[in-house]
Every structure is written in C-alpha cells, then in structure tokens.
Design a protein around this nucleic acid. Structure first.
Lengths: 390, 390
DNA sequence: ACTCGTACCGCAAACGTTTGTGATAGAAAT
DNA sequence: ATTTCTATCACAAACGTTTGCGGTACGAGT
C-alpha cells in the first residue's frame, strides 16, 4: 500500500526506476515522482566490500586493465616481472574473476541447461550425476530445472534458460508436451540440444534413448519362457514414445511366440501410483485374469505386487510381474521384482559428451543423430515361476 | 604439436590471443607471431543468427536504447503509443532479454548456488526440490553442484560458485570437511549462506538442522519400550555433528532409562554399505550379541536386516532394528523398517526462504540463526517385538 | 510575452571483462 | 645516422543492459 505523497491516493502508483538505490515511484493521477523514506541514503555505512576487479589491480600498480588481463592469462606480450607483480597483487587483493562480465564479452555462459520432468525418483537424478561428471570436468556449470511434468512449467523454464544464455540444453520432455515451439527457439539460436528418453520428432537435435522396444521384448519373452501365457501390459501414456515402444515390444514378443494380443489386457496409466493400483485391481478382478503383468515401470509393478498381496494372490506362482527401470526398491520388495535396467548414468554422460562435441565443432554434419542404448534384464523372484512352488 | 612457421621449432610456442577468431601463436625462440591455417576466415557463411538485442529494436524504430529498455519495463516516462510499438516490435523480432548483461549492470546474478555432497540417495534431491519450489517462484535460478563427499571437490565448487557471482549459497558440507576457509570467502563478500544438516561452527551463517538428538532419543526409547535391553548403535563418522547428536541421543536415552552404555556396542561407520555390512556381521557374531540395533541411517539398517536374514536371525523377534531418514526402500523391505523421518522437503523450502529473507533486508540482526526441525518416528515391523511371535 | 511545469525522449556513463591496434622505447641492423 | 625490428604496454571499443540527468516541446498560468 503505497500512498502518493501529493494526492494521497493509492490507485495509480507505478514503480519508476531507482534513484541512488531508492525505489522511485510515480503517481499516474497527479503525475508526481517521489521516493519513500524521505531523505536519500547517505551512502550506507555498512559498505559492502565490493569484490576487487581487474581495474583495482591496474590502479594499484599503475598499469592498464589490458595488461592485467593479459598477465592473468599468461599472455606473452607482458613482461615476466610485471606479470609476477600483477599475479602477486591479484592474490593479495583476493581477486576473483567476474564470470558474468566474462560471459558478456564472450557472449557465452559456459552454462549447460538441464531440464527434467521431476526429481522425485532415482532415474533423473542419476542422469544428472552422469552429465555433471562430464561437464564439470570440462569447465561447464549446470542450471538444473524441473518442469514438474507440467507443460506450462516447461515453457517458463525454457524461457528462463534462454534468457540465461545457456550454451547447450539437455532435456527430457514433460509427458504433457505436444507442442514444441519453445524448443524451436533454441534451434533458431543454434543452441545445441540433446533430448533423452522423451523427445520430439519435430526438433533437430541429438536424441539419446533407451532401446525400449528391445527391453520390452526381453521382458515379455522372459515371461513366456517361464510358462506364462496370458500376459497383460500396464502401458504408459500414449503420447510418450517410450510407452509406444514398450507396447510395440510387448505386442511383437507375443505374436512372435504365437500368443494372441488382447486389447482387454492392455491399460494405459498416467504413471501415478493411484492409477496403477486401480488398474492392478482391475486386472486381478477380471473373470479371466492374466497370469502375468508387464508394467511400464517399477513403481507400477510394485503397486501390482502390493495389490496381489492384498488379494492373497501368490507372486510369482499365480502371477508373474516384470517392471522397468530398476528402482532401488525393486530389490527389497518381497518377492524381488524382475525389471529392465537402463544405463541411467551412461545416458547423462553421453548427453554431456554430445553437447561438448557439438560445442566444439559447430559444423558437424547432421545434428539430429539418434543413439539407442541397450537395456539389461535383471531377473528376480517375481517372475520365476519355473523354480517356484506351484 | 604446433610448429613455429619461422624457426620450425615446437618447444616454445605460446598462445597469444585471437585475431579475428583465429588462434594466434607466439614463438618464444624466434619471437614470431603467427596464426595457423594460412588465410583468415572470410567471415563464415554459417552466419549464426545473433539474438536480437535492445539496440536492434531501437534501431528498427529509430528510438534510443533507453526508451526501449524503459518501455519493456513499463516505465511511466514513455508514451503509451511508443510503448505499444516497442513491445510489438520486440515480439516480432523475438526479443529475449540478455540475463548476462542484466546481471552485470545489476552486479548480481539472481542465481542461488546449492552445494550438496551427493545426489545418489533421496535425501538431497528432495531438499533440492523444496528449495527450487520457493526460489523459482521468486524468480531465482539455481546452480546445483555436488561435491561427491570430497573436500577437494568442495573447494573447487565453491570457487566456481564464487566466480559465478551467486547471490546466495545453500550448502551441506562434505563429511571430510574440516577447514572452512573456502566458506569465509562468501562471508567476506557478505553473500548470505544457509547450511543445512551439516554445518561449520566457525562460519557466520544460518543453520537448519534436523533435531537429531530428539530423533535418536525417540528411536531408542521406542526400542526400550518394546522390551529390548541390549541396544547397539551403528554410529556415523565422528566429525559430523549429526553423528554426534544421534550418538548423544542414544546415550542419553539409555542412561535415562537405567540402561548401561557399553563401548563395545558402538561402532562408527563411514556410511558405506560395505562397512555397514561388516559391522552388522560383527555385532551378530558377538559372544553376547545385541538384541537391537539403532542405525545411523536406513541404508545401514537395511544392511543389518539383510545380514540378520542371512544368519537366520529373526527380525524383530530376536533383533530389533531402527533406521534413520525414511528411505523409500524402508517401506518395502521385509520386515518393514522402523525409521526416523525427517521433513526433507521442508528443509529445502526453509533454506530457500531464509536466503530470500537475507537478500531482502541485508541488515537483519544476527545472521547466524539456528533452526531445528522436528523428526517423526515411523514405526514399522522391524522393531515391534511386543506384537511379534517370540 | 514571459515563466513554469511536465510529458517524453535521448545522451552517456557504468557494470567488468577481452582484445585488436596503436604507441613507445630501446636494441639491432644497415 | 638512419632504418627496422621487437618487446612491452596503453587506448579504446565492444558485449547488452540500466538509469540519472539533461534537453526539447508544448500547454497552462501569470
């Protein structure tokens, strides 16, 4: 509630820049400029110790800024003695280079943006670790943002990253994302992008994906090998490529082995635990229930196991369960969950390396390469009917 | 291997700045400046579309930079019509403000640094989520770095953050960290710091900690209430305050209930799974083994349960186990692990709020406040001897 | 006709770097 | 003695903003 000092109204008060650190206001009604707090600050006593700059060093030694800059970069055009003096003075004055100024003149940031849907599970943090491992070694910093699986958040985050003048972007899209204009802005600026796991066909960019098809085939064929015949699939959201690929692997594995593909045994979840639980119960309540379920991810698979346990259905004897993504919980639940492990950290490393490569030689052939990483089936008790007591 | 174009030697070649984008070299032997690649680049054809600036808009409309800047900030000193024209032109030219330039003139960054020991477990990512929730809402970005529990990495990371001119720092120290000079640099620059979980007494900063003492007391008294009498403690590294506090809680809970504190029942781990496993076996192999173990964290507690299972020792009938930190696995292991839950996300939120508060009013009393957050004991099967079959 | 207030806009400095080019001196070469 | 070279440094522009202040033009008041 700011009142105009002239007309005492509060309606039409606008901020109008700063005057010596004081917020300046402007009343639209009476057209009056003013600042709050009466007198201006008389240069505050708590003089925040300004970090020393190159100019300070130059002034202290009576040389030019350029000489200092060159000396600190070990440029040959400066005398060894003055170089020594400058470096010593820099240490003495506790000089820290201002990255912001450097970035401005270089019109770069040495920052790589990383945009992921969420932080809650293990997958994305692990990818981040892998990327950070490579990028920090190469002298890059990272700004990590999460879109909370929200399209709107993704838009605002990309805007922030664009304003931050990031040098590259590593991104996994929201499950809501259907339009890609916000990514085209990076394309236009020729900012290298690497998509992982979830990607847009429309965007020219590097793509790193897990071979979801192969992983799904391996999972389902494992179930078939264990003697399961009526295998259901708790699939993921339709718009995600990974869902489509895993579904395709499920279908192909079935038909390749002479088993029918039944629509009633395929349900698409939104990846939430609640829906997974409801769908699990639906499967188990069917007149002719499945004898195995291949789930889109481990959290869903865990919900299935819990639902089965609640109903007194024995896993794996009466119901085989296979998950996806090797959640750390999957090793500790009873029974241990068979799952498809993804080379998570490797994704991050690879994405970082690709970004660095793109940054190094800008004119490197087609920029929309496609890399598929193999998965590994980790077999635990939840799918081992062969050895389990009937 | 760069050869001097004059004397053909390779020994004394130094880099000497750039000439029109070409790396320029300098031979110390023959004192010769040269560039590689013969002719200079004739202004590359792949003209990278430079992002449009305020100047571009100004030139396009024949107004001054300042007018554009003011118009985009809705400053009252610019006519509504020109304001409209400028905003429209900005959209048309796809203008994105350059955050780097803004930061330079404001001598700020609107970046909060976050430095955590690791990313692997759930704790730190969850804290980050909480902090990000608050900070992004306030228009701040975050640079997140991990020190990998390495003191050397912590040093280099703080240097990077300092050069990045972060406005504030949220940090949890390495378990190796014993010297704090690298944090004093922030103190000197008056960059607000918030330590969480692990902190340094020597540094003037806000501190947010879990009330580890209270959590430990609750855990151990719960065990005593369940009839356990010979309660061991798998403690953490000695230099961490949280280890000391939990140990203190363990000791006080014992003596307050008239139970002896036995040194042989206290072992300090380094928080690794391997050590936890070894120590767990040591406890169980004792001539007079403990009937309960209070572990410094859930991963260690899980190792204890696994070791007991391997030895055929029944939990909780023969051995009670309580962990700390409510790892997601703890709910899924058999038996469910009793644990002390920490308000993880709340730590992040609180840290972010404190940073913002410090940023808002710089002269806010003592800057080394201390906040303790309460824990919550989550009781699961691993400690319920009362109801369990003997 | 004169002053005065004001709406509007431009000028220019500043933030802290980097870097091409110009300037100076002394030394070496002619 | 004159030229040429070169080691060493300073000058100044540039990166893209923000912002205090000076200026113009126009309307209102005297």
């Amino acid at each position: 509630m700011i009142k105009c000092l002239k007309c005492n109204r509060v309606e039409a008060i606008l901020k109008a820049g700063f005057l010596r650190g004081q917020q300046r206001y402007y009343c639209k009604d009476c057209s009056f400029h003013f600042t709050l707090g009466g007198t201006l600050k008389p240069s505050p006593t708590s003089r925040k110790s300004r970090p020393t700059t190159i100019k300070d060093i130059a002034r202290a030694l009576g040389v030019a800024n350029s000489t200092v800059s060159r000396a600190l970069h070990d440029h040959p055009d400066v005398n060894e003695d003055t170089k020594k003096a400058i470096i010593q003075m820099a240490q003495q004055m506790d000089y820290q280079p201002n990255q912001v100024a450097y970035d401005l003149v270089k019109s770069q940031s040495r920052i790589i943006g990383m945009l992921v849907p969420e932080f809650n599970h293990v997958f994305f943090p692990t990818v981040i670790i892998g990327a950070q491992e490579i990028l920090t070694k190469a002298g890059y910093r990272m700004i990590i943002m999460q879109s909370n699986e929200s399209y709107a958040d993704e838009i605002s985050n990309t805007a922030t990253l664009l304003a931050s003048r990031i040098d590259g972007l590593i991104v996994s899209m929201t499950k809501e994302t259907n339009h890609y204009e916000h990514f085209k802005a990076f394309e236009k600026r020729e900012i290298p992008m690497v998509f992982f796991n979830r990607y847009a066909e429309e965007i020219m960019a590097q793509r790193i994906v897990i071979d979801d098809y192969q992983g799904a085939v391996a999972a389902v064929e494992h179930l078939i090998g264990q003697g399961y015949r009526r295998i259901a699939h708790m699939a993921g959201p339709r718009n995600l490529t990974l869902s489509q690929e895993r579904l395709r692997g499920y279908i192909d594995a079935l038909s390749r082995n002479g088993l029918p593909v039944l629509n009633e045994l395929i349900l698409h979840t939104d990846l939430s635990d609640e829906t997974a639980k409801i769908y699990a119960q639906h499967f188990l309540d069917m007149a002719e229930p499945p004898d195995a379920i291949f789930a889109i991810n481990d959290p869903s698979a865990i919900q299935i196991i819990l639902a089965a346990r609640a109903k007194g259905i024995r896993v794996p004897a009466e119901l085989g369960v296979v998950g996806y993504s090797n959640d750390p919980r999957s090793a500790y639940i009873e029974p241990g969950l068979t799952t498809v492990a993804q080379p998570t950290k490797e994704i991050g490393r690879l994405a970082a390396k690709k970004i660095l490569a793109l940054l190094a030689n800008e004119a490197s052939g087609p920029t929309d390469q496609f890399v598929k990483l193999d998965t590994e089936l980790i077999v635990r008790a939840s799918s081992l009917r062969a050895q389990a007591p009937r």
